[in-house]
Design a protein around this nucleic acid. Structure first.
Lengths: 342, 342
DNA sequence: TTGAAAGCGCTAACAA
DNA sequence: TTGTTAGCGCTTTCAA
């Protein structure tokens, strides 16, 4: 069960290994006569030759490996991004190595190290914290890297994501349009760019509509989870501010909002409207179906991959794209309606 | 920004590269004096040495790469398995390369080839069809491989999965226990082992309870999707058999069943009970919350990885495990209740 | 216990 | 256009 190698192909075709290599490699094929390259290709095919990527990588100092780091592949936000990236990369002859950090900084560091040990040509990272020393080190190291989903305060690495500000504005516009004036915000954690960006966008949107200052109308969840969303909502309700609509930092937080509304006997959307963020799968099946902001996750992953490839293969003298935002849309469903008329 | 290599460490420690290699490698460290190995380790640490996995792999003919092939990472069934596998593998010093075939056989073949070009030490495959030539070729090639989630008719490769037969039996037992006698089954596609296995288990369970022969009580969906489930349910309802409970081939099919019941004004669980399979995320949030069979997906992925590692690293003279089934449990929720009493 | 040297499979600079 | 040769960074046999 010996593996066929280049020398075997060369021998079978009656040429030197160097020639066989040139014939097999599309970029060097024109250095070889048509007849010879035909013979080599044929022999390779016949013997079932599969080039050894390790050996090639060792010689060319390129691994054709791209690492992608996600906090938790079980979070439905990430699979579509991974998929989008993988399609682009494998189409370009690259292999995607996926690592899941389990939301743990030490694990992340170890895995990035592993990726570098493999000579990864580049990195796609979805785990950025607002302050993130590891990413600053990576930026300093010069490894081609693109952030997705979240970016860092230092903004030292290019970023691809959705246009979150517009997403929040669309949602608030919608609520205002159907009559809401008292809108509260259950924000996501502020140690991520998404949490900060969306909070800022909410404040701005509310202000632009001349609605009451949101200072006391924002409650911050300390994680993007149902439980954290519920806790933040309880805190909000305990200060008994009155409101007719809730904007949630993401869909899972919206789930927490929904459960607390249920607890307190507040009906959605009759008494309080609710908008989420992300449009995760199955949120159209819950009751009430959630109005939410949809991000083009697959496209984000794909564009991140293309951005990275440009950086890896690019000539380097072109101006680099530092940030790309993709358009988002508001998905209207049953969780939003006019405020109670009394 | 030059990368530190073994020779640099050796020079810094004042030893020969061969010695440095021995000191750095845990399995050969005892061939080196304590003092020397201490010096080498220290130098490596100080210089930030990261070994080049490619070079090592080329020399040792081992890549420490395991490929995992899934049909669609966007399907929530797979992320937990991937995660379980990745944790085991990275704990053992292996890197997981994930590939998504987009449910396409040609893509799958191309990707498996890529994985072999990378010298993958083994494969975990979640895409098995009942008749699957590619997998038979892989089996013949001798590449260590473990199937998860589904197996092939030829059973030439070891398989790790959930105990599906027991899952179906638990579900049917539950329905019978709360009073149902007329149970129908909306099966999944019969070109997968899961579709076949569950169908057979249903027939057997029904028979063992002395319920009416299920021949006309089974409708087959041609895919594990909501749409296919809905279509199969319509076919069932159009032949107007009367029943009080539906067992679905999986959760997505159950979703299709639910929507058709809604269409026809049949209430669940008051008029008809419904049981799913897999316990996907969010199915506890739909209305009614779905009673379903839970598989230990993470554990399945983890065990598949361990099985594979045993095969890769094993001495080869031990008897190999050919199949491992993990325990499942029935999760009772709102979609099942006693049949109507009239 | 350590050093010397060969070689894993491939590519690329140089020579012919 | 093709052959020759060296070497990518590492491990491992052999010798000292």
């Amino acid at each position: 069960m010996e593996r066929v190698k280049l020398t075997d192909v060369a021998r079978a075709a009656g040429v030197h290994p160097g020639t066989a290599s040139r014939a097999l490699n599309p970029t060097t094929r024109d250095q070889v006569s048509r007849e010879t390259s035909r013979r080599v290709l044929l022999a390779a095919q016949r013997l079932g030759y599969v080039p050894n990527t390790l050996a090639r990588g060792l010689r060319t100092a390129r691994s054709y490996v791209v690492g992608m780091v996600v906090p938790d592949i079980t979070n439905p936000l990430f699979p579509p991004m991974v998929r989008g990236a993988e399609q682009v990369l494998s189409g370009a002859g690259y292999t995607l190595v996926l690592t899941d950090t389990d939301n743990d900084a030490a694990t992340e560091r170890r895995q990035v190290e592993q990726l570098r040990a493999r000579g990864a040509d580049g990195l796609i990272i979805a785990t950025a914290r607002w302050e993130d020393p590891l990413l600053d080190e990576i930026a300093a190291s010069g490894t081609p890297t693109v952030l997705v989903n979240r970016y860092t305060a230092s903004r030292r690495l290019p970023y691809v994501g959705g246009d979150e500000r517009t997403g929040i504005r669309l949602a608030v516009d919608h609520l205002v349009e159907i009559g809401h004036r008292k809108i509260v915000y259950v924000a996501g954690p502020q140690d991520t760019s998404t949490g900060r960006e969306r909070s800022a966008a909410f404040r701005q949107a509310v202000r632009s509509h001349g609605l009451p200052s949101p200072a006391r109308l924002v409650s911050v969840a300390n994680a993007y989870t149902e439980a954290a969303g519920a806790a933040a909502t309880r805190k909000l309700l305990d200060t008994t501010v009155d409101f007719t609509a809730v904007m949630a930092g993401n869909d899972l937080i919206a789930l927490g909002v929904l459960s607390v509304l249920g607890e307190r006997g507040i009906r959605c959307p009759e008494q309080v409207s609710l908008v989420g963020f992300n449009d995760l799968p199955m949120f159209d099946k819950i009751s009430p179906p959630l109005t939410t902001v949809r991000l083009p996750l697959g496209a984000i992953g794909g564009l991140a991959a293309r951005t990275l490839l440009a950086e890896i293969e690019g000539t380097g003298d072109e101006d680099a794209v530092v940030q790309s935002l993709l358009g988002v849309e508001l998905t209207l469903r049953g969780s939003t309606g006019p405020p109670p008329s009394d």
